[in-house]
Amino acid sequence: MQRFEERPLLKVENLTKQYGPGCGECSQPGRPGLIKNYCPSCGTVYACSDVSLDVYPGEILGIVGESGSGKSTLMQCLYFDQDVTSGTLTIDDPELAGENLFDVSSQRKRYIRNHKYGMVYQNPVKGLRMDFSSISNIAEKQIAAGGRHVGQMQSAGERLLDVVSIPLFRMKEEPRNFSGGMQQRVQIAKALSNDPPILFLDEVTTGLDLSVQAAVIDLIKQIQRDLGISMIVVSHDLAVIRMLADRTLVMLNGRVIESGLTDQILEDPNHAYTQQLVYSLL
């Protein structure tokens, strides 16, 4: 658990992602004209509305919510897969000091993705080239981050595949030949190949068998323990968040409706929706 006197490694303030023009009914503070996250006057959908969060060094922040709550859109905005409508993103890094990273150039965003971020998507097809070998997928990320020494990249790739329990005799195989759980582990190895301080994991256990889910969760916990990487873990499953996250945000209709220590939220949820989530685990 982080010490709260530390500065956040990553800080987001008032992130909004809307689809539509907005109007006087839905653009006011608090957006009183919305029905859930939809404006009936102008048809605008607020996928994320005024979301703020901090991620501290070495912690895992969980984000939980039902399908359509905005959690995956939030992740895509943080990783620059989507542009935000408004908001600020800062990272406590000398290279990026004082910059709102949502406003920097596409070239600068690409640099941040290649050097500061790792991403593991729910669908491995989005994070892997299925017709490249596993070790070539890892090398692709290393090359994007400036790697040029073939021997060093090969050695690092083998080490990472070993970390995620992919047999080295299969490193030349294409991920399309692997099971879903193995594909996720290759994705994790690829995401770690640039030694990122921040790792995003979006619904990484969804669709996996329970035993495979447990193996992936154990791997994430081991990586966080051994490497001290800060992580944001998104899931609709509070049981996954309970096993992984130090702190948790609960999202509903594009907003953060509750936040706090994971144990605190599990033991004494305040919002009716969070109570429903917690009681569904019992």
Rank of each mutant, 00 (worst) to 15 (best):
E174W: 00
L227T: 04
Y117W: 08
Q184I: 12
F200H: 03
C26W: 12
L168P: 12
I188M: 14
D92V: 06
L9R: 13
T85Q: 05
Q275H: 04
G151L: 00
M243W: 02
Y46C: 15
D246G: 08
E173Y: 14
Y279D: 09
G58C: 08
L168Y: 05
F102C: 00
K190D: 01
D263H: 04
K141A: 14
Q82I: 02
C39G: 07
F169H: 13
G181I: 08
G228Y: 05
S69H: 15
Q28E: 10
V164S: 01
L15N: 05
R242M: 01
E5S: 15
I229N: 06
Q264R: 13
T274D: 09
N253P: 03
P32S: 04
S49F: 03
V216Y: 12
I35P: 06
Q76C: 12
L128N: 11
M119C: 08
S106A: 15
C26S: 12
I198R: 03
A191M: 11
R159C: 00
L160T: 04
A215R: 11
Y121P: 02
A215H: 08
E258K: 04
R113L: 01
I166W: 07
I229G: 01
V164I: 15
E140F: 01
V12G: 09
Q222I: 02
G62C: 10
S106T: 11
I198Y: 06
R225H: 11
L249G: 07
Y79C: 15
I143W: 04
V64T: 11
K221I: 01
I35L: 06
F178R: 00
M1A: 14
G43M: 03
A191F: 14
M243R: 06
N253S: 04
K109L: 03
I241F: 04
R129V: 13
K36E: 12
Y19A: 07
R129Y: 11
E6W: 14
K172Y: 01
G30M: 07
R113F: 10
L261P: 04
G157Q: 02
L15R: 11
A144Y: 10
L53V: 09
G30Q: 03
N14Y: 07
P197K: 05
L160W: 03
G62E: 11
F102T: 10
G33F: 00
M75H: 10
M130W: 09
V250C: 10
D195E: 10
E158W: 01
G207F: 15
D226N: 06
M153C: 08
F80A: 05
L61Y: 10
R159E: 11
L249N: 12
D195C: 06
I138Y: 01
I188R: 08
P29L: 02
E158F: 01
